[in-house]
């Protein structure tokens, strides 16, 4: 095991995050604050409670999740895309480091950063609303699991992307809409049919639901199903990453 190599990549990626600290942390904090002001304060006063939870508090898990998904994907994708773009990927490919070790470094760092962002948003939320967490360990567990799954997904996007447009395509045009339609601002029980059924095909629904359960003890879909969907997505991404390295797709000639 090339632990020095894994550590080198991890530290490099964390240092890159620190260089762009403003963008990495302030943006999600600002967005969360705006969401609380607009949806929690201005509009939320007209919605009293959702499933027995104050609407402002109800928003917290969904908002954390939505930032987490976008940040994980963009962070991990740029981490591997940038060396491809600048040509420094030659060093990674010529190094005595396995595919697994390389992913461990890149995805590990992206996951760490996402979890940190999630916790910062949670801390920001407490400034606006009362937040209670019924299952703190499960909350942390899902935070890490989701960050990991979407960082892996981001890694794949970074390898796949041939230009900056493609790099931004998935976070902006796929992840963001899915997040908005994934029950961040509402409970899917509030939707009329057939939209309620349609929305069950959106994987983000399961992530938000199980995360909300860890806060308030209730979710839109059963915990076990949510967990299974999250794990299935994680394994799918892991499988794709392994295939990428075995074939050298878009990394090697």
């Amino acid at each position: 095991m090339n632990t020095h190599g894994v550590w080198a990549i991890y530290r490099f990626e964390m240092a890159r995050g620190l260089r762009t600290l403003w963008q990495s942390l302030i943006t999600p904090v600002l967005l969360t604050s705006l969401n609380f002001i607009i949806f929690g304060g201005a509009l939320g006063s007209r919605i009293q409670e959702v499933g027995g939870v104050d609407y402002g508090s109800f928003l917290v898990p969904g908002l954390i999740m939505s930032s987490l998904l976008v940040q994980s994907v963009s962070n991990a994708s740029i981490g591997i895309y940038f060396p491809k773009f600048t040509g420094t990927v030659f060093e990674l490919l010529s190094a005595p480091i396995s595919a697994f070790e390389m992913v461990l470094g890149y995805v590990g760092a992206a996951t760490t950063k996402s979890v940190a962002i999630g916790l910062v948003i949670l801390a920001t939320a407490t400034a606006f609303v009362d937040v209670r967490v019924d299952h703190p360990l499960a909350m942390l567990g899902f935070l890490i699991l989701t960050s990991l799954a979407f960082s892996l997904f981001g890694f794949i996007i970074g390898v796949w992307a041939k230009n900056f447009e493609q790099l931004n395509f998935v976070p902006t045009l796929i992840v963001t809409p899915l997040t908005f339609l994934g029950g961040v601002f509402y409970s899917i029980d509030m939707l009329p049919e057939p939209w309620r059924t349609v929305t069950l095909f959106n994987p983000v629904v399961y992530l938000v639901s199980v995360f909300r359960w860890s806060f308030f003890g209730t979710g839109d879909v059963p915990v076990a199903i949510s967990l299974a969907v999250t794990l299935a997505f994680l394994l799918l991404c892991l499988g794709i990453v392994m295939v990428i390295f075995r074939t050298g797709w878009r990394l090697k000639n």
């Binding site: 020095h4 190599g5 550590w7 530290r11 240092a15 600048t86 420094t88 060093e91 990674l92 005595p96």
Partner: peptide, 27 residues
């Protein structure tokens, strides 16, 4: 390997990038 292209991490310092390379190669 010293490649033909000047492919280096522009935002890194000289010392940091050398430390990175050494560790990346398992040292």
């Amino acid at each position: 390997l010293v490649p033909q292209e000047l492919s280096v991490d522009m935002f890194e310092t000289v010392l940091a990038t050398c430390r990175f390379s050494r560790r990346l190669f398992g040292r």
